[in-house]
Design a protein around this nucleic acid. Structure first.
Lengths: 153, 153
DNA sequence: CTAAATGCAAAATTTTTGCAGTCCC
DNA sequence: GGGACTGCAAAAATTTTGCATTTAG
């Protein structure tokens, strides 16, 4: 996989680096985008567009939900963030761009990242490579998280 | 993973076996469910609820889309079919219940199944097992399929 | 300046729900 | 017969779009 622009950026210098990302991708560094990106980098809970909107609204009362949607779509196109595939309908997003995998709780919908470096080193089977050009791949584990298991009747 | 009820059923005897599935799961074997299940077993293109509805409508003019949604939800609850996670909004479904993985074309949204038995034999890392009870897991590969690569300008 | 981005409102898309009637077990 | 299921219509939920205005480069 191609090294992504955002992969070297830590929360600490996210705001400083965002202008560089914009310069490289050719998108404009607006106030809204800056804030949305910052919030995405801080978030480790794979928020939906709506959740992100609620978080940002406090500091930006005039922000509109459609701008959040449009911005996230733009970020995704430029590989600044990723969509996360879940079984549910609401699309969720993450700014963590290095390779990792997801555990998704079927009960509470919490998404937890995990690493599996020995898997990451493996090549995908020939059969898959023949299907086309591979851009990305990851493992999704679905189950019931510890919290939900404990809290069950 | 627990062996699913539908996994031994081939298209040939799908209709015959559907009543058995219903008996085991305790759901009623209605005409609509029979037809929807049959269509799902025949389909190898991971259709959406709407596409399935269109296919069935010819033979069942009074079928309604909400019944298709409700039926697919019921089937999913009883592990008769699975939802397929895609980046896009429309939920897609499949009746192939044995372990396999997906290649999803980012251009045409075609989902192609592939097998990777050596991966399937591996245990997930300890780190993941600690997150909770694992129900299922699979690999999603995203890329551009051969057809889309060829047809590009 | 100018093309791109935003906010507002309205629409489009996808999925769910209430209810009255129908059908399986 | 009784509870589960269906169809209809209407609503809910999620995402997208058109347009006038504002803003970054």
């Amino acid at each position: 996989m191609k090294q992504s622009l955002a992969s070297k950026i830590t929360p600490r210098n996210a705001l400083d680096s965002f202008k560089t990302i914009c310069a490289k991708t050719g998108i404009k560094a607006t106030h809204q985008r800056l804030q949305i990106y910052d919030e995405m980098v801080k978030a480790n809970d794979h928020p939906t567009a709506e959740i992100l909107f609620e978080r940002l609204r406090e500091a930006m009362p005039t922000l509109s939900l459609d701008t959040v949607y449009r911005t996230l779509a733009t970020f995704e196109q430029h590989h600044i963030i990723k969509r996360v595939k879940t079984d549910r309908h609401k699309t969720r997003y993450e700014a963590k761009m290095n390779r990792h995998h997801h555990f998704i709780c079927q009960e509470c919908e919490t998404i937890t990242d995990f690493n599996w470096s020995s898997f990451d080193k493996d090549k995908l089977p020939e059969e898959v490579q023949r299907l086309g050009t591979i851009i990305d791949h990851s493992i999704t584990v679905s189950g019931i998280c510890r919290d939900c298991t404990t809290n069950r009747d």
